[in-house]
């Protein structure tokens, strides 16, 4: 089955992960800009990072037949540094024009501080000015519900097109408010700290598949790109059909990401030769 991994931090992963993903049906990944594990001090560090994910990483993925797309942003954890954030934001339009860059992300909140909120607003404004998609990170663990609500409040004041905004790392306590407000919601599958493959299938069964994305967000921490395939297996083992699975794990990423014409992979439909 063809799968799209819509949130994947490829630079933190090995070539073997690409190879195994290709063998398990992954045809494309999208890589948002991410926190490096420490706070970067220089705008130039971001610029080099953006070059890596917009120019080099697509060549590495291509060796395994996987299309690689990217997003650019200052991560919420680094938004406390206003000078750095503003300087990086001023240079982001150059990268938004790259042939595989899909939009602004992942921006969002970590501890929902004033500076983080200002950075989120500035990122969304930049995206709106350049007619870009937006990928928004929501806080982990105990801050999730509060941070998600603050995010929704910020967006409500900004006259964004909800169809162009994906709010990620949703779980049971936040999914409804995101969908009710008209945004796309993402479920990130982690071994311990975020949603699990089984709980994601519960959410899909409860809310349906419209405007829902599933991803592994695999990075340099305890994470696993194949939680996405675990989710596909769980979904299918509960009796859901192949086309239903394709709608969620391939076609929904096509529908959201395809709002940017650079993402040219189209939704697919399974049929027999007689049809």
């Amino acid at each position: 089955m063809q799968i799209i991994q819509p949130h994947y931090h490829a630079i933190a992963r090995t070539a073997q992960d690409y190879e195994k993903m290709a063998m398990s049906g992954v045809v494309a990944v999208a890589e948002p800009a991410f926190w490096a594990g420490y706070d970067r001090r220089h705008p130039e560090t971001f610029i080099d990072y953006f070059v890596q994910i917009t120019e080099f990483e697509p060549t590495r993925a291509a060796q395994y037949g996987i299309r690689h797309f990217s997003w650019v942003a200052v991560n919420p954890k680094e938004a406390e540094n206003e000078e750095l954030t503003n300087e990086v934001l001023s240079q982001m339009p150059e990268f938004l024009d790259k042939p595989t860059c899909l939009g602004v992300g992942e921006t969002g909140l970590h501890k929902s501080t004033k500076k983080e909120i200002a950075s989120l607003q500035a990122h969304v404004e930049l995206a709106m000015k350049h007619d870009q998609l937006v990928l928004i990170h929501t806080p982990h663990l105990s801050d999730k519900a509060h941070g998600t609500q603050v995010t929704l409040d910020v967006l409500k004041e900004m006259n964004v097109d909800p169809e162009k905004v994906w709010i990620d790392h949703a779980e049971e306590q936040t999914i409804e408010s995101i969908l009710d407000a008209g945004y796309w919601a993402g479920m990130t599958l982690y071994p311990i700290t975020k949603c699990s493959p089984r709980r994601a299938v519960d959410i899909l069964e409860k809310y349906g598949s419209e405007r829902l994305l599933v991803n592994s967000s695999a990075d340099w921490g305890p994470s696993d790109p194949f939680t996405l395939q675990e989710c596909v297996l769980e979904f299918r083992s509960r009796g859901h059909g192949l086309q239903e699975a394709i709608e969620i794990f391939h076609n929904n990423p096509c529908r959201f990401l395809g709002q940017n014409p650079k993402f040219d992979i189209k939704p697919i439909k399974v049929s027999t030769e007689e049809e």
């Binding site: 311990i192 699990s196 709980r199």
Partner: peptide, 12 residues
């Protein structure tokens, strides 16, 4: 965190 995860799975 591991126990939190197991409890969430149980609740689910």
């Amino acid at each position: 965190l591991e126990t939190r995860c197991m409890l969430l799975e149980t609740a689910a």
